[in-house]
Design a protein around this nucleic acid. Structure first.
Lengths: 222, 222
DNA sequence: ACGCGCTGTATTGTATACAATTAGAGAAAG
DNA sequence: CTTTCTCTAATTGTATACAATACAGCGCGT
């Protein structure tokens, strides 16, 4: 059986990512404990983890709230991701093995299959996309880099952006993965870095555009 | 009165940085609790923080040990620092204020005073150096970046490297700070980024050389 | 009406007891 | 002699009670 603090972490994280809790909502330890069916002790551990993930913020007096992400925040996070994942891709290119290439290719094929349906399978896309990036990161073989990136990769807002992708955006993502594969296969670190950085920047603009669209809709509805 | 968990954090961190505990030493919660004069609860909070700082590592079964840093690890950490602090400097250049310039200048003057004595005041140098970098980071105004960098800035090994600096190394550091000030004053982001990245890389080589020297000494003594 | 301080209540911090898990020593079998 | 199994002791995980702290609302004085 999994530890209670882990379950609490997953539960609370899920509530934030799913939108069940919205930005700014207060997170009382006692309330969460009741909701997760555990005592406050594991909740506190979970909150500390979520804090380093930047999914929650704590006031000076240690009260916890669901973090709110302004467009500036998100832009900032993406720029950091572009830099760090670019670095990861470069390191991966220097350490790549034939097995890795095979696994990445399989991954990207699964993505291709998921997005060429008439009704794109977004869940599979997200899973395989995550796997693709995780493989690259693993190959980069830097514990520190892995640590830093986990805080940035699982971003709440981004998580849902792919649902607004149009067919062309999916194709772009897939093609960029293929390009990255080519760079890795040739062990060309700088190329891999450039592609990855561009890949992340494009994802940001996809998010940014979708967000803008959503805001106009809200405005129109109001 | 400061919180017990904070005191515990500082105490344990101090024990690691000062070398009272060496790499690989086991860190039992109960033993630490007794040593810090608090219960296990705040110790657990402190250990979590130290873990994200990468000063301790935890086994699969959650036992804690003082982290050991290979030269590769350190090199890796420095490269990340160079990238991230470079980015911070660039952002700072875009957001700089006259007050900041003044504070940085004061900081660097204090450094100059500390290192031009016949017997350099290393403690002051370290403090002011930290303050200098903290000011730049603060001006960069990215909560995320700050989070990521704290894990890298307070490196245990690095902390003691300055004690092995020769007079010229201190002067280099001071001069590079002055260069950075010039870049900030002109709001030249790319220049600031280059200087900062170079500054960090130089620090790595200073560490690397000193480390090499220490290893030869050890060898000779054995 | 406005600001200031006080008090009650809600929330977090800490200690402690107990449960669950794991490492490691030692015995038994091959 | 090596291997594996078991059992014990040490260590971490969780729950709960209590202490300290912060926030909000109210009353008071200006």
């Amino acid at each position: 059986m999994t530890k209670a603090s882990d379950r609490a972490y997953e539960t609370i994280r899920g509530m934030i990512l799913s939108g069940e809790l919205s930005a700014g909502d207060p997170l009382g330890e006692e309330a969460l404990a009741e909701r997760c069916g555990v005592s406050r002790t594991p909740i506190r551990e979970a909150l500390r983890q979520l804090e380093t993930d930047l999914l929650i913020r704590r006031t000076d007096s240690q009260r916890s709230f669901v973090a709110d992400w302004s467009l500036d925040d998100v832009s900032d996070a993406f720029e950091l991701r572009a830099m760090l994942e670019g670095y990861a891709a470069r390191r991966a290119a220097e350490r790549v093995t034939p097995e890795l290439i095979d696994r990445l290719r399989a991954c990207n094929s699964a993505i291709a299959a998921a997005i060429s349906k008439p009704q794109p399978d977004v869940a599979t896309f997200l899973d395989r996309n995550r796997e693709f990036h995780a493989l690259v990161l693993e190959t980069a073989a830097s514990r520190r880099l892995t640590n830093l990136l986990t805080a940035l990769i699982e971003q709440p807002v981004v998580w849902r952006t792919a649902h607004h992708y149009d067919p062309e955006a999916f194709q772009c993502s897939h093609r960029e993965h293929a390009d990255l594969l080519a760079a890795l296969e040739r062990r060309d670190g700088p190329w891999a870095e450039s592609i990855m950085a561009g890949h992340i920047h494009r994802a940001f603009h996809a998010y940014s555009d979708a967000h803008q669209g959503m805001r106009s809709l809200e405005k129109g509805a109001a």
